[in-house]
């Protein structure tokens, strides 16, 4: 499971962090465990970064994942994956990584 904000009033799930619920405008967002499952909708191999601290980690596999829980998440990929692959997200050191769901 991963932790995302879920609205206690309308049950919608949100990412990135919001301050009020963008679906119903109530102040009822709560961090909850949600399903880490989703589908890769597009990907890229990043060869340049605007920050020098990334230079020796390039190239990086990135993708956009549509979570079953709702939101889109820009995430690292554990490997080169095809669009449409069913993936599972993990959250470590402040970032998400997606790997193929087995």
């Amino acid at each position: 499971m991963i932790r995302l904000q879920v609205c206690n009033a309308c049950k919608s799930t949100h990412y990135p962090e919001r301050d009020i619920c963008p679906s119903c405008w109530r102040d009822t967002l709560d961090w909850q465990q949600v399903s880490p499952l989703g589908r890769l909708t597009t990907s890229t191999v990043l060869h340049t970064s605007v920050k020098p601290e990334w230079a020796d980690k390039l190239p990086l596999q990135l993708g956009l994942v549509k979570l079953d829980a709702g939101p889109n998440i820009l995430t690292f990929l554990s490997a080169s994956l095809n669009t449409g692959t069913l993936v599972t997200l993990t959250f470590n050191d402040g970032v998400f990584t997606a790997k193929e769901t087995l």
Binding site: L46, V50, K51
Partner: peptide, 13 residues
């Protein structure tokens, strides 16, 4: 946080 690709990364996707 995902490699700081900025708009290049977003538009690549």
């Amino acid at each position: 946080p995902y490699g700081a690709g900025g708009p290049n990364a977003s538009f690549a996707l």
